[in-house]
Lab assay of single mutants.
Amino acid sequence: QGDIVVALYPYDGIHPDDLSFKKGEKMKVLEEHGEWWKAKSLLTKKEGFIPSNYVAKLN
């Protein structure tokens, strides 16, 4: 089961498979690959890669 993270900063995706998000948006982490994680937005239901240093895990 994936962790839920919250965006600390907004992110505008650079690549087509990036997931753009707004500050405060919550996402479910699907896979962790070093600095880039695959996640699904709980708001938009879209999936893509996010920079892990832009988010914090919720406990």
Rank of each mutant, 00 (worst) to 15 (best):
Q1V: 15
Q1P: 13
Q1T: 15
G2C: 15
G2M: 11
G2S: 11
G2R: 09
G2P: 10
D3Q: 14
D3K: 14
D3N: 13
D3P: 09
D3Y: 15
D3C: 15
D3M: 15
I4R: 03
I4T: 07
I4M: 07
I4N: 03
I4K: 03
I4A: 04
I4V: 09
V5K: 01
V5I: 07
V5G: 02
V5E: 01
V5L: 05
V5N: 00
V6C: 09
A7T: 03
A7K: 00
A7D: 00
A7V: 02
L8C: 11
L8P: 00
L8W: 04
L8H: 04
L8Q: 05
Y9A: 08
Y9C: 15
Y9I: 08
Y9D: 04
P10K: 12
P10S: 15
P10C: 12
P10Y: 08
P10D: 15
P10E: 11
Y11M: 03
Y11S: 03
Y11K: 03
Y11H: 05
Y11V: 02
Y11Q: 02
D12G: 08
D12L: 11
D12M: 12
D12T: 14
D12P: 10
D12A: 12
D12C: 14
G13R: 06
G13K: 08
G13I: 03
G13F: 02
I14Q: 12
I14M: 11
I14F: 09
I14R: 12
I14L: 12
I14G: 09
H15I: 05
H15E: 07
H15S: 11
H15C: 14
H15G: 13
P16D: 10
P16E: 10
P16Y: 07
P16K: 10
P16T: 08
D17N: 13
D17V: 06
D17P: 07
D18L: 07
L19E: 01
L19C: 03
L19A: 02
L19V: 02
S20D: 06
S20E: 06
S20G: 06
S20W: 04
F21T: 00
F21G: 00
F21P: 00
K22N: 07
K22Y: 06
K22P: 03
K22V: 12
K22F: 07
K22G: 08
K22C: 11
K22A: 09
K23H: 06
K23M: 09
K23C: 12
K23F: 07
K23E: 09
K23L: 08
G24K: 02
G24M: 04
G24R: 03
G24S: 04
G24H: 06
E25V: 02
E25F: 01
E25R: 01
E25H: 03
E25A: 03
K26M: 15
K26R: 14
K26Y: 15
K26E: 08
K26W: 15
K26I: 15
M27T: 00
M27D: 00
M27R: 00
M27Q: 00
M27L: 11
M27F: 11
K28M: 15
K28D: 05
K28R: 14
V29Q: 02
V29K: 04
V29R: 02
V29L: 15
V29Y: 02
V29N: 01
V29G: 01
L30V: 07
L30P: 00
L30E: 04
L30R: 03
L30Y: 07
E31Y: 09
E31F: 09
E31L: 08
E31Q: 10
E31H: 08
E31D: 09
E32F: 14
E32Q: 14
E32L: 14
H33I: 10
H33R: 11
H33E: 08
H33K: 11
G34Y: 05
G34C: 09
G34S: 06
G34M: 05
E35R: 11
E35N: 13
E35F: 15
E35M: 12
E35A: 12
E35P: 12
W36L: 09
W36P: 04
W36S: 06
W36N: 06
W37Y: 15
W37L: 15
W37T: 08
K38S: 05
K38N: 05
K38Q: 07
K38W: 15
K38Y: 15
A39K: 01
A39L: 06
A39H: 01
A39Q: 00
A39E: 01
A39W: 01
A39D: 02
K40N: 04
K40L: 13
K40A: 09
K40V: 14
K40M: 14
S41I: 04
S41G: 02
S41C: 04
S41L: 04
S41T: 03
S41K: 05
L42Y: 06
L42R: 03
L42S: 03
L42G: 01
L43G: 06
L43F: 09
T44Y: 03
T44I: 02
T44Q: 04
T44H: 03
K45A: 13
K45E: 14
K45W: 14
K45P: 03
K46A: 10
K46E: 09
K46S: 07
K46L: 12
E47K: 07
E47H: 06
E47M: 10
E47A: 07
E47G: 04
G48L: 01
G48F: 01
G48V: 00
G48I: 00
F49E: 03
F49W: 15
F49C: 12
F49M: 13
I50G: 01
I50A: 02
I50C: 03
P51K: 05
P51H: 06
P51V: 01
P51D: 04
P51W: 04
P51E: 04
S52V: 10
N53I: 08
N53Q: 11
N53T: 12
N53Y: 09
N53M: 09
Y54M: 11
Y54K: 08
Y54I: 07
Y54T: 04
Y54N: 05
Y54L: 13
V55N: 01
V55C: 08
V55D: 02
V55S: 01
V55H: 02
V55M: 05
V55I: 06
V55Y: 03
V55G: 02
V55L: 04
V55Q: 01
V55E: 02
A56K: 14
A56S: 11
A56N: 06
A56I: 15
A56T: 13
A56R: 14
K57G: 07
K57T: 09
K57M: 09
L58K: 05
N59H: 13
N59F: 09
N59E: 14
N59K: 11
N59W: 08
N59P: 12
